[in-house]
Simulated assay, not measured.
Amino acid sequence: MKYLPIYLMCIGLTFIFALNACNKSSDQANIEEEVSEESPDNKNKDKVTDYSDIKNLPQDTGGEQLAYLKGSTTASYGYYAYTPSAYHQGTEQYPLIISLHGAGKRGDGTNIDDLKKVLWLGPSNLIKKGEWSPSYPAIVVAPLTSTNWEPKTLHQFIEHLTNTYRVNEQRIYLTGNSMGGFGTWNYIQEYGESANVAAIIPICGKGNPDLAHQFTNIPVWAFHGVDDNTVDVYGSINMVKAIKELEVDMTYTPKLTLYPGVGHDCWTMTYDGSGMGQGNPNFDAFDMSIYDWLFRYKKE
């Protein structure tokens, strides 16, 4: 058996590495081309709501985050719920932020060790670590599911929360990562304008561009890692692009932030804010707290 000379093997390997690098550069160029006609100058010009309904809420100096096992309430999920420090001393209504986990945290929520999975990501994780300090106090809920996030079940769960807590129903916000990102998109795709949420933040999820018309009256800010090998980045790109291309008067302009060189876990840097300033400049900048962005909107 004959072997190739070492120098020929080196040349071959160099060619393969160069080809892979070119493919990656080509992919990045294609992604940048997606918004080259509209994005670097694209600024969010949406009307910002007034804050009169939340500006006088008592300061949150650190509330409590409690577990509710599945079966212990009428809710369809087990969940953790955080209430601000002054919640039990007054009658005020608070914004509600609901965070949906990904497939890796699935469980039935009937025991506490299972339910604790939801505390390892999102706003609930910031609360757990004592790092939760949004500009306005809010109720924060993290449910646990053993299946995909079904829109109708999620809708019933939101109704449970509004019946259980003093929720400002004009200020219900939904976010989720990976499977939770899919669930966030799917909820609006199912309910459209009748969805009882004021704004959404889907992270590394995927929407259905054929249902883009359901998003004409809801603020969207999507996040995705360019090198995501679990959920392709075009799951977010194509969805946001489809919403922007609707031939109707848009109430809100959807936003999309992409992280170059980042894989599937782009939610940590989004939820804790450490990804600010790291987005592709051809897309929407991550230049403000996502929680402050949510508070810009309320459902009329």
Score class of each variant (00 low, 15 high):
Leu4Trp: 11
Leu4Ile: 08
Gly12Gln: 03
Leu13Ser: 04
Thr14Ser: 10
Thr14Ala: 14
Phe17Pro: 09
Ala18Arg: 10
Lys24Asn: 13
Gln28Thr: 15
Asn30Pro: 04
Glu32Gly: 06
Glu34Phe: 01
Glu34Thr: 01
Asp41Thr: 05
Asn44Pro: 04
Asn44Val: 10
Lys45Tyr: 15
Asp46Arg: 01
Val48His: 06
Asp50Asn: 12
Lys55Arg: 13
Pro58Ile: 14
Asp60Ala: 00
Gly62Ser: 12
Gly63Arg: 08
Gln65Thr: 04
Ala67Leu: 06
Lys70Ala: 12
Gly71Pro: 05
Gly71Thr: 07
Ala75Asp: 12
Ser76Cys: 02
Gly78Pro: 08
Tyr79Gly: 05
Tyr80Trp: 15
Ala81Gln: 07
Thr83Ala: 12
Tyr87Val: 00
His88Arg: 05
His88Leu: 00
Glu92Asn: 03
Gln93Met: 04
Pro95Phe: 06
Pro95His: 06
Ile97Ala: 04
Ile97Ser: 03
Ile98Gly: 03
Ser99Cys: 02
Leu100Met: 10
Ala103Ser: 15
Gly104His: 07
Lys105Thr: 13
Gly107Met: 11
Asp108Arg: 05
Gly109Thr: 10
Asn111Tyr: 14
Ile112Val: 06
Asp113Ile: 08
Asp113Tyr: 09
Leu115Gln: 09
Lys117Ala: 13
Leu119Met: 10
Ser124Asn: 14
Asn125Asp: 10
Leu126Gln: 12
Ile127Met: 00
Lys129Thr: 03
Gly130Thr: 01
Glu131Gln: 13
Glu131Leu: 15
Trp132Pro: 07
Ala138Ile: 12
Val140Lys: 03
Ala142Pro: 00
Thr145Trp: 05
Asn148Asp: 15
Glu150Gly: 05
Leu154Trp: 10
His160Asp: 15
Asn163Gln: 13
Arg166His: 07
Arg166Trp: 10
Arg166Asp: 08
Asn168Thr: 09
Ser178Pro: 04
Met179Ala: 04
Met179Lys: 06
Gly183Gln: 03
Thr184Trp: 11
Ile188Cys: 06
Gln189Leu: 03
Gln189Tyr: 02
Gly192Ala: 07
Glu193His: 00
Ala195Thr: 11
Ala199Met: 08
Pro202Leu: 12
Pro202Ser: 07
Pro202Asn: 08
Pro202Ile: 00
Ile203Arg: 01
Ile203Ser: 00
Cys204His: 01
Gly205Leu: 10
Gly205Arg: 02
Leu211Trp: 01
Ala212Phe: 06
His213Ala: 13
His213Tyr: 14
His213Gly: 08
Ile218His: 01
His224Tyr: 04
His224Asp: 11
Gly225Leu: 09
Val226Ser: 04
Asp227Ile: 01
Asn229Tyr: 12
Asn229Ile: 13
Asn229Lys: 13
Gly235Pro: 08
Ser236Glu: 13
Asn238Phe: 02
Met239Ile: 02
Ala242Arg: 06
Ile243Cys: 04
Glu245Met: 12
Leu246Asp: 09
Met250Trp: 11
Thr251Trp: 00
Thr251Ser: 15
Pro254Gly: 09
Pro254Val: 08
Leu258Arg: 03
Pro260Thr: 07
Asp265Ile: 00
Gly273Leu: 11
Ser274Met: 09
Gln278His: 11
Gln278Phe: 11
Gln278Asn: 11
Gly279Cys: 02
Asn280Glu: 15
Phe286Ser: 01
Ser289Ala: 04
Ser289Glu: 13
Phe295Cys: 03
Arg296Asn: 14
Arg296Trp: 12
